[in-house]
């Protein structure tokens, strides 16, 4: 026992190093993409509060209130759009007399921290659990797609930006209707990559790319970007296209968080699909 302690003491520098690294790795893995919220979380009231205060100071003082009102009005406006409703079956009798049922609800939120130059970029917004934000909600601005909520605390949420290696979003080329996947290669924050578009379909430079609505996170038709360039990689049956984003991710201040009120139902249906013969 004495020898053991002597040994540990002799190499304590190394052992402490290993211990701290293991703890850091544990945090990295637990905190990374899609892990459930943890006790030690980077989205907590203290850090969020400080970032929020900081963001408040750096806001243009006179524009602050105007921006907030504008964002809230916009969210309200989106709530009234027919796109926020889903048509219920018209061939049967109605027990309730609503022809449309709301599918999406929009919440206005303010960005309090944001990065674009890292390989994996995240934003923090000033709305959280108490405001009704949950994980896996979509985030967009009036200009286009931003990302999805990956972590929520009481008053703040962390959003995985589309500028992230873990971000995969189902999108549609508007002209041909082909479905592809939007990823980011980490190079330029203005340019995304569209993959999985079959080569037999037609793709043109300047085509608009929008969300497909297949992911249950984003409504259909949220603007993503335009095709800037495309190519077929050797040995590939799919196009790889560079997408010029509509949104300047370096300059986003107000966003909408989009709640799909039918997501749970849709996911349950998805989970049951292997039971069909």
């Amino acid at each position: 026992m004495k020898n053991l302690f002597a040994f540990l003491w002799k190499y304590h520098f190394f052992f402490l190093f290993v211990l701290l690294e293991l703890f850091s790795f544990f945090l990295v893995v637990r905190n990374s993409y899609y892990q459930s919220s943890v006790i030690v979380s980077s989205t907590n009231r203290i850090t969020g509060g400080i970032l929020n205060t900081y963001s408040g100071i750096t806001d243009y003082f006179s524009l602050r209130k105007a921006n907030r009102i504008l964002a809230e009005e916009n969210a309200d406006f989106y709530n009234r759009l027919s796109g926020a409703f889903i048509a219920t079956d018209t061939n049967t009798f109605f027990l309730n007399d609503t022809l449309y049922r709301r599918q999406y609800r929009y919440y206005a939120a303010k960005v309090i921290s944001n990065t674009t130059s890292r390989r994996n970029n995240y934003l923090m917004i000033n709305k959280g659990k108490v405001h009704g934000i949950e994980r896996e909600m979509g985030v967009a601005t009036s200009g286009g797609i931003v990302g999805q909520v990956v972590e929520v605390s009481d008053y703040f949420s962390r959003v995985m930006s589309v500028l992230n290696m873990h971000s995969k979003i189902s999108v549609r080329v508007k002209s041909s209707g082909q479905i592809g996947t939007l990823i980011w290669n980490g190079r330029d924050y203005r340019i995304g990559t569209l993959i999985d578009i079959p080569t037999h379909s037609k793709l043109n430079i300047g085509d608009t790319v929008v969300t497909s609505g297949f992911s249950h996170i984003f409504p259909e038709g949220i603007r993503v970007g335009t095709v800037q360039d495309f190519r077929i990689n050797p040995g590939d049956n799919f196009f790889t296209a560079d997408i010029s984003y509509f949104v300047d991710y370096n300059r986003i201040y107000h966003v909408f968080v989009i709640q799909n009120l039918f997501r749970k139902e849709m996911n349950e249906l998805d989970a049951n699909k292997n039971h069909t013969p």
Binding site: F13, F17, L20, E21, F23, S24, F25, F26, L27, V28, V29, R30, N31, V40, S41, S42, T43, N44, T47, I50, L51, S113, T115, Y122, M124, R158
Partner: peptide, 23 residues
């Protein structure tokens, strides 16, 4: 590293790198 991590939303990342640097 951990202090910086708390405010950057990268929990553990800077802590690991800083510890390694110290090592």
């Amino acid at each position: 590293g951990l202090g910086v991590d708390f405010f950057s939303g990268t929990l553990g990342l800077n802590a690991a790198a800083a510890t390694f640097t110290a090592f």
